[in-house]
Each structure stands twice: as C-alpha cells, then as structure tokens.
C-alpha cells in the first residue's frame, strides 16, 4: 500500500493531523461547555472500574484466552458504536448545536502495524491502555502516575523521532 509515504509530505501531514480531527466545530463556545465532556468521561470512568476493565488480572486473562470478558466488552462496544455511526450517517443526524457530523477516513501507514505492536507489548505490562490509566489513578493507585508520566515521555520521544521512523 502507500509505499512512499515516508517521502510524501501528504503522508506525513496525515500522521500529523490524525488526532487533531477531534475538534471539528466552527462554533465558539465558552470554556465551561467542556464540562459536558467531563460528564461523559465520568460515566466512562465508573464503567471502567465497575466492569474491571482497569484490572491487570482481566488483561492477563484476555491475552491468555482464559476469559471472554474483555473480548465481550470490546466487541459489544464496537457493535453499538457501528450501529450508532450507521444511524448518524443514514439519517444525517446533527449535533445538539445543529452542526452536521463529520467523519475522517484514516489513511494506512506502517505505524499502525509497528506502533500497534509496540503498544500491544505495553498493554499487558501495565494492564491498561491510555484510558484506564486515568481511572486507575482515580481509584487511588497513585503509583500509576509514574506509568502515565512514562507514557507521556514515550509520546514525546515518538514526536521527536517521528521523521526518522518508517510510516
């Protein structure tokens, strides 16, 4: 697929932009409008803890095929998400502020494989992907702040060497 993406400025731009698509709104809202996202995150955090998704043991079981739990969680989430996205597209659903909802096709690059494997190595070590790290800290496991800082350091190092890495 995209063999010359390392040379192509377009490919690099794609990597640069990929997670800056989060904010699509043209509307200017006061900062405290962001509390609606805090509310969604709060619910998410409770689910993380109560369904033991932040449990190191559940992640070990998942990768040893000893439990269906995590596969069930992720699988159900994907199915519900798929149906939701399909409905939004099918009926041209707008945001609560009346804006059309945008989607961004992702472009393949080698980072999804190489970076994906690297993240995969880290996942059973910490027992957490980035979201659960925050919930683990919330439950009082303050030593996870070290894991989070290390993850931020890892992100920074990636940013520093990004142009030298295969994409």
């Amino acid at each position: 697929m995209n063999t010359n993406s390392t040379e192509s400025p377009a490919g690099v731009d794609e990597v640069f932009m990929e997670d800056l698509y989060g904010n699509e709104t043209e509307l200017r809202h006061p900062w405290w409008y962001n509390f609606k996202y805090l509310a969604v995150g709060l619910l998410f955090g409770i689910v993380f803890v109560k369904a033991e998704i932040i449990s190191w043991f559940r992640i070990q079981e998942m990768f040893r095929l000893q439990s269906f739990h995590m596969f069930g969680v992720i699988g159900t989430a994907v199915v519900v998400g798929m149906i939701s996205v399909w409905l939004i597209k099918r009926f041209n659903v707008k945001t609560i502020h009346g804006e059309p909802i945008h989607f961004h096709p992702k472009v393949f690059n080698k980072g999804q494989v190489i970076g994906g494997l690297i993240f995969g190595f880290g996942w059973p070590m910490t027992g957490a992907c980035p979201g659960p790290l925050f919930a683990q800290i919330g439950t009082g496991a303050l030593v996870i702040i070290v894991v989070l800082l290390s993850a931020i350091a890892g992100t920074w190092v990636y940013g520093y060497f990004r142009e030298k890495l295969p994409h």
């Binding site: 990597v15 990929e18 997670d19 992720i74 989430a77 994907v78 998400g81 798929m82 992702k106 690059n109 980072g111 999804q112 190489i114 970076g115 994906g116 494997l117 690297i118 993240f119 995969g120 190595f121 880290g122 996942w123 070590m125 910490t126 957490a128 992907c129 980035p130 979201g131 790290l133 030593v143 996870i144 070290v146 894991v147 989070l148 800082l149 290390s150 993850a151 931020i152 350091a153 890892g154 992100t155 920074w156 190092v157 990636y158 940013g159 890495l165």
Partner: peptide
C-alpha cells in the same frame, strides 16, 4: 511500570490511536 508506560505512550502515538480511537471509534 516505567517500561510498560513508555511502550504504551510511544506505541499508541506511532499507531495514531489506542483502543478507543482505533478499536472502538475507527472500527
């Protein structure tokens, strides 16, 4: 803790997302 955290941070950004951005939103 430190090694695992580093791999998570480096790998997710290199991959352009994690379980939420790719596995749930992307799928």
């Amino acid at each position: 803790l430190v090694g695992g955290g580093f791999l998570v941070g480096f790998g997710t950004r290199y991959a352009g997302g994690c379980t939420s951005g790719h596995a749930i939103m992307g799928l």
